[in-house]
């Protein structure tokens, strides 16, 4: 059958674009901010430490340029990750799980529930403080086809986890 012949039928199919994706919990932005700030301060701190260790003139003269360069990169990185936060969205349909993310490379991944091998809900120390958790969905595919939805409200993650588990067990 020709693919273009399918067009009419295809348009009647459930459309992934029509799905209203739900943004992840706002408080996850705080975790992102805390994590990246910790990382930046570590990098900048190490750089500053080098200033006291390396006594070569070439390094000492250009130190502040290097430092500023790294700082600017950190700030740009931070802005991008804050903007990208808005792109992190998810949805659970009757037959699949959808997760969208990414500012520069935006991707929308869908995993049919019938292909899920198992689900896992994990919570880091920081996430527990904000009442969040990460939902990990494993398929039999390559590592690339596994989903990891970060920053879900704990109760919701639990709900989705239960729902998928029930579906997966019911099917097999």
């Amino acid at each position: 059958m020709n693919f273009t012949n399918l067009q009419i039928q295809v348009e009647d199919l459930p459309n992934v674009e029509g799905v209203t994706l739900k943004p992840i919990a706002k408080s996850y932005l705080k975790i992102i901010a805390l994590n990246s700030l910790a990382l930046y301060s570590l990098i900048l701190g190490a750089l500053y430490g080098l200033k006291h260790l390396v006594k070569e003139d070439g390094f000492q003269d250009n130190f502040w340029y290097v430092f500023l360069g790294v700082l600017v990169i950190c700030i740009i990185n931070f802005i991008i990750s804050v903007l990208a936060f808005k792109k992190r969205k998810y949805a659970v349909r009757g037959h699949d799980v959808i997760y969208a993310k990414g500012l520069i490379v935006h991707s929308v991944t869908t995993v049919p529930i019938s292909r899920i091998q198992h689900v896992e809900e994990s919570r880091s120390w920081l996430a527990r403080h904000f009442g969040l958790s990460t939902l990990k969905i494993f398929t039999a595919g390559e590592a690339g086809s596994d989903l990891s939805i970060k920053g879900l409200p704990h109760i919701e993650a639990k709900g989705i986890n239960d729902f998928i588990s029930a579906e997966v067990n019911g099917n097999s």
């Binding site: 992934v16 500012l103 520069i104 490379v105 935006h106 991707s107 929308v108 991944t109 869908t110 995993v111 049919p112 292909r115 398929t139 039999a140 595919g141 690339g144 086809s145 989903l147």
Partner: peptide, 14 residues
């Protein structure tokens, strides 16, 4: 046999 499908678009492609 498909396990998952992903739609990818860079900011330049949009």
């Amino acid at each position: 046999k498909i396990q998952s499908i992903k739609l990818k678009q860079t900011i330049f492609q949009r």
